[in-house]
Simulated scan of single mutants.
Amino acid sequence: MAGPPRLPETMSEGECVFCAIGAGRAPAAFVHEDDEFVGIVDLRPVTTGHLLVLPRDHHADLASLPAEAGARMFGIAQRLAAALRRTDLRCEGINLFLADGRAAGQEILHVHLHVIPRHAEDGFVLSADWRVRDREELAKVAAKVKAAL
């Protein structure tokens, strides 16, 4: 039996793996590095070329990430998406995906943005109830969101 995955020797028990990657204490295949962010190849890619953009500093969710840093994270993702299109990797489209909270599918509680190259036969599907809603329902939702701003 293989047992649980082993931590890199330089990473401490309970440490956030993305913090360890950002600090150089855990391995990753880097595509972008600066003082504030890293871009890495996803260990469990949806498609070949699936990348992650993550802040070096720990921010569990999007709300805890400063707005300027969030804008910068999306800017880096935009540059990486353009780079993917220039490679010979299969990339007929791109999804940017950010799961914010466990209910949204966030598995590692360190905010990160997926840059996923897409093609017609890749099998990646987001399924939902896409039916059109009535205007009254939309107005009520809009009012709640505006009130919370």
Rank of each mutant, 00 (worst) to 15 (best):
M1Q: 04
M1R: 10
M1T: 08
A2P: 13
P5V: 06
P5D: 07
L7Y: 03
P8H: 02
P8C: 03
P8N: 08
M11H: 04
E13P: 04
E13G: 00
E15M: 11
C19M: 08
A20H: 08
I21Q: 08
R25V: 08
A26L: 10
A26T: 10
P27V: 00
P27G: 10
A29E: 15
F30K: 14
H32K: 05
E33T: 14
D35N: 13
V41M: 14
L43I: 14
R44L: 11
R44Y: 13
P45N: 09
V46N: 02
T48L: 12
T48Y: 02
H50D: 08
L51N: 11
V53K: 02
L54W: 07
P55Y: 09
D57E: 15
H58A: 09
A60K: 12
D61W: 01
S64Y: 09
P66F: 04
A67I: 07
E68D: 15
A69K: 15
A69E: 12
G70I: 00
G70H: 00
A71G: 15
R72E: 12
M73K: 02
F74Q: 12
F74T: 12
G75N: 11
I76T: 03
I76C: 03
I76E: 06
Q78P: 01
R79H: 09
R79V: 04
R79A: 13
A82F: 00
A82L: 13
L84N: 01
L84W: 02
R86I: 00
T87A: 04
R90G: 01
C91N: 05
I94M: 10
L96E: 06
L98E: 07
D100N: 15
R102A: 15
A103Q: 12
A103P: 01
A104V: 05
G105I: 06
Q106G: 07
Q106P: 00
Q106N: 07
E107H: 09
E107D: 12
H112I: 10
L113D: 10
L113I: 10
H114K: 12
I116W: 03
I116N: 03
I116R: 05
P117T: 00
H119G: 04
H119F: 15
A120L: 09
E121C: 04
E121L: 09
G123A: 05
G123R: 08
G123Y: 07
S127F: 02
A128E: 10
D129H: 12
R131E: 11
V132L: 13
V132W: 03
R135F: 01
R135K: 12
L138K: 04
L138S: 11
A139C: 02
A139L: 12
K140R: 15
V141E: 14
V141R: 14
A142R: 15
K144M: 14
V145H: 07
V145L: 15
K146F: 06
